[in-house]
Design a binder for these strands. Structure first.
Lengths: 131, 131
DNA sequence: TCAGTAGTTCGACGGCGGTCAATCTAACGG
DNA sequence: CCGTTAGATTGACCGCCGTCGAACTACTGA
């Protein structure tokens, strides 16, 4: 229930695990993610998923909604943004602003990461820089 | 000597430790930091400092320069920026752009964090948002 | 040449983090 | 009311992470 701002290092630590980073990326695209999806897309057991979602929750990164016997997670983007702001204080400079926005808003019809693709950390394409 | 881009999770993991985060913050202000300064400002022994700087180096976050028997570390801000870009893909929106720039460029005459101040994670002030 | 200093490297140790099988809880459907 | 299913909790295990003292390396200055 921690509504007070969480220490930056705790958020970093939460993001510093491949599986959790993968979860966050999935949630950024789906905007509301069923727990069952995670069980399908991640190569770990249910308890482990529960463990990771708890870590992310404690870091303030995700929000949990229980509907019936199903759980839905959503990304708290403000936390990500305030973390970026804090980083930007350390490394100001040109920032990417419009990355062919279709990649952000367009209906993601293709299924994302399957089981083995957890380690896929290759950065996506980028475009158009500015201050 | 890893010159290839480092996985995001590795960078996050490197930033997810209070002492390392403190080191990064110091380097962001000093722009070139003597190892001896770290020994004075951090509450850990020399071997531990060496260990942490190694982690940061492997994550691509800092660069090492040896001058005589002294070591100097500097922050590789590009890495921080590309990490921000990757985060921005997940949480686009208004970003802080000019945070009373004196706080960024002005000569920092006051000594920063002393021994006990490692846990000081409170975000700095901010201002002026935009896309 | 040699004593001293700066910093890394090398064990070794304690604790935390990630994992799973087993158990538990709560909601659903019949 | 009861079997089933979704997901969290518990307990245990093991490997890695952060820490330090001690030894080592390299540079300095006299």
């Amino acid at each position: 229930m921690t509504r007070e701002p969480v220490a930056a290092t705790e958020v970093f630590k939460a993001l510093g695990d491949p599986i959790r980073w993968n979860i966050v990326q999935q949630m950024a695209q789906q905007d509301e993610l069923a727990c069952s999806v995670l069980e399908d897309t991640l190569p770990v057991s249910k308890p482990t998923i529960s463990y990771h979602t708890k870590i992310l929750t404690q870091a303030g990164l995700i929000e949990v909604r229980k509907r019936g016997r199903n759980y839905f997670y959503s990304l708290r983007r403000e936390v990500l943004r305030s973390l970026m702001d804090e980083m930007w204080l350390l490394a100001p400079g040109p920032r990417l602003v419009s990355s062919t926005s279709d990649e952000l808003t367009a209906g993601r019809t293709d299924r994302p990461a399957l089981k083995a693709a957890v380690g896929d950390d290759t950065p996506r394409s980028s475009a158009l820089l500015t201050w």
